[in-house]
Simulated scan of single mutants.
Amino acid sequence: MDTQVARERLLDMQQQLMADIDGIRSRLESGVLPDTPEGGADFGDRGAHEQFAAQDEGLLDGAKRRLASVEDALKRIEDGTYGISVVSGKPIPEERLEARPDAATLTDEDVADAPLR
């Protein structure tokens, strides 16, 4: 993958992930349930709130991890090591980088297909 194309895709991903993180944080801080009617909260409402909060915490954690991965990929572009596995030092297939521009390693399938040295 051309590094300029990769950089643009990664920067778009970075912006989207930061917006997603901000939105999730806002929901968590507000404590407001989606589609909750005004009025008293019963025990079921509190349980639903806890479930939504747990789901949002998971989404937030995943978005933060993906953002870190995207930022690492941007650093690899700057370092000139983009497209090279950080584990094996072998090239990452173009198809993998097209599907996941922040890929840092080979898949198990890529490793199995790699020629022996």
Results as ranks from 00 to 15, higher is better:
6 A>T: 06
11 L>F: 04
27 R>K: 14
47 G>V: 10
7 R>Q: 10
10 L>R: 05
63 A>W: 06
63 A>F: 06
67 L>R: 02
41 A>D: 11
108 D>S: 04
54 A>M: 07
75 K>G: 07
92 I>N: 00
2 D>T: 09
56 D>N: 14
107 T>M: 01
117 R>M: 00
115 P>Q: 02
17 L>P: 01
6 A>F: 00
83 G>V: 07
111 V>Y: 00
23 G>A: 05
40 G>Y: 10
28 L>H: 01
68 A>H: 14
92 I>D: 00
17 L>R: 03
110 D>N: 02
69 S>F: 00
56 D>Y: 08
82 Y>T: 03
104 A>R: 15
114 A>E: 00
23 G>H: 01
56 D>T: 04
77 I>T: 04
101 P>T: 03
43 F>E: 09
52 F>H: 12
19 A>N: 12
13 M>G: 10
74 L>E: 06
83 G>L: 06
81 T>Q: 08
54 A>T: 13
1 M>S: 09
93 P>T: 01
99 A>D: 07
97 L>V: 11
7 R>C: 02
72 D>G: 12
47 G>R: 15
9 R>F: 10
105 T>F: 08
69 S>H: 09
9 R>K: 14
6 A>P: 09
40 G>R: 12
45 D>Q: 09
98 E>W: 06
99 A>S: 07
3 T>R: 04
70 V>N: 05
114 A>L: 06
34 P>M: 01
64 K>H: 09
99 A>N: 07
